[in-house]
Nucleic acid binder design. Structure first.
Lengths: 330, 330
DNA sequence: ATAAAAACGTCCAATTTTGTCGCATTGATG
DNA sequence: CATCAATGCGACAAAATTGGACGTTTTTAT
């Protein structure tokens, strides 16, 4: 029994394919875990384990402190097994994320999605896929593909707080190589942006990950500008959206049609929204929300389905815009 | 070694907490897997395994064929370990899904998100959270909460093709109990709808999951109406959106501003889109897309940022709508 | 060239595992 | 109510495995 646990811990110590760990390192770590074992034992155990198809581990046969790793990046096995509930939820999440995340990011999770697939199949629930659908409420734009090796370096750089050297091709410009000082990742639309400074300059830039041609980790540590906090940086509106300078809570009053009334009953704008009748076909909606660009987009997207009544400034802004639109289309 | 594998397979056979498996059942399944073992051995093994804190399994002490299960729904352990890459991607997915999925659905995955958390913490990468942000491009409506027990029954009913009895409260009506004949789940906006028939009627209904008060699995098998295919049903537009009757591919020509030009360069409307200059501040975008309601919403949401040039019918529709809006706001 | 480290083969005692048996308990059945 | 079958559990001994010890070989570093 003792040995079972040791096997387990040993398997946990072994990293996945690109990485590896040497036999003496495993020995040392096991001894730190209070296992009184011999190097010989570790060697024997590893050979035994790798012999089983259940544990696809292998070693580098050429180097002399043998280095061990998990071979293929197939779906991980787990205890307890993934339940069918979880499996189904995974597949739903996958459908949801498909149009949102770039393939290389989603690719990091394929192991789990495959595991879910397997689970659903072996449970004879193969028809689940015909029983689930997603109706997107936004236009499916094509997410830009990111070079997987770039993503790997960026992840590592961010996690380890290291800089990296990379070739970046800005729009309509020729590629250039910079030393990037990464500060954070921001997802926006269907793209991922790296918030970073370049070389030793202090101005914060946004670099689209899909525009990096290659990347290589450096060993220089990241320098964070004083007072830089990613969330503040986003909230400030420095981030790509033309966000309003001062976000204020407003009491929104809208005249909406039946369709919107139904929708808002199910997914309210805020916890305390009120809906009352105006006439047979129109309803008054009152809600307290923050006045963001997203709100404006949302309001506009329904066209004549929504009439903004209050706040007055917003109504006037809409009136102005409608005038501009009239000129466009007449 | 043989025994290690047996332990492993045994642990795989044991389900999570609400479910359970009896010792003789385990024995039978093991024997099917060509393990020549005695019942006594299985009993002993289970006791041994449950003694270790690594394997939180327990049995029902009162029943006589003892039934075994995994105790707490804590994060699963897995081999090989979750890599930091995967962990980070999980956390990103979590941030993404947070405003989209109802809590009880997302709750099914917390085990994995927690595992990711743990992984990032033990790797001393605790600051990752300060390095990642999501800027949503749609208005965060509040996802309606679904009673977890209802979700469980619906999942099970769908997977096993069984009906269930449930109390449903339609908008502005008092709750009623029906026998539901589930056909499929559809995510739309931030709500989940069950596509189903009721009792033995044949008309297909859409029932919002969050309006179910309770649910209980029946043992009557699901009856699928002839020719019913969920995806067709959605595509038909029977689904709640007022979708256009015949979806056609159109060649869209838009006059867009700088902001949109940038955005569309990064996340194109279609693979073959073209962007050319009109004047200093405006650009011509050409793309072939399907004419959906989502497209119309998207086009409208940018207000004066987009002028629809072609197809002419679409332009005229926009012109008409602008006229209607003019009346509203003047 | 030399020493140190690692891998690997082998032997054997200590330990663990496992089948068997006996007995107690429980639940179903006649 | 008695009986039987199924299960759990303790004990024991045989069988199997494990793991340390030691020696040899190979590789790496100095």
């Amino acid at each position: 029994m003792e040995s079972l646990l040791r096997y387990f811990d040993m398997l946990c110590l072994i990293p996945k394919a690109p990485n590896s760990i040497s036999t003496p390192e495993i020995l040392e770590k096991l001894q730190n875990m209070r296992y009184a074992v011999d190097l010989r034992t570790v060697q024997r155990d590893l050979v035994k384990l790798s012999a089983s198809p259940l544990f696809p581990i292998a070693n580098t046969e050429n180097t002399k402190p043998l280095r061990w790793f998990w071979i293929d990046n197939s779906s991980p096995m787990q205890l307890p097994m993934m339940s069918t509930d979880e499996a189904l939820t995974f597949k739903l999440a996958e459908m949801f994320l498909e149009p949102l995340l770039p393939p290389s990011v989603r690719g990091r999770l394929t192991g789990y999605f495959d595991l879910a697939d397997k689970r659903l199949k072996e449970s004879k629930f193969e028809h689940w896929i015909e029983k689930v659908g997603v109706v997107p409420n936004n236009l499916p734009l094509l997410p830009a593909e990111i070079e997987p090796s770039v993503l790997a370096v960026v992840y590592e750089a961010l996690l380890k707080s290291l800089r990296f050297k990379a070739t970046y091709q800005a729009v309509n410009k020729s590629p250039k190589t910079y030393e990037i000082n990464p500060l954070g990742l921001v997802f926006r639309h269907n793209s991922i942006y790296l918030v970073a400074t370049i070389f030793d300059y202090t101005d914060v830039k946004q670099l689209a990950l899909h525009r990096f041609k290659d990347a290589e980790l450096s060993d220089r540590i990241v320098l964070v500008p004083t007072d830089f906090v990613l969330n503040d940086y986003i909230a400030q509106g420095s981030f790509s959206y033309p966000v309003d300078n001062h976000l204020e809570e407003i009491t929104l009053k809208l005249k909406v049609n039946v369709f919107l009334k139904q929708m808002l009953l199910e997914t309210p704008l805020c916890a305390k929204q009120k809906i009352s009748d105006i006439d047979e076909k129109h309803y008054l909606l009152e809600a307290i929300v923050t006045n963001t660009k997203q709100l404006n987009w949302w309001l506009r997207s329904f066209g004549t389905g929504i009439e903004v009544l209050e706040p007055l400034e917003l109504r006037q802004a809409f009136a102005l815009e409608v005038k501009a639109l009239s000129k466009m289309y007449c």
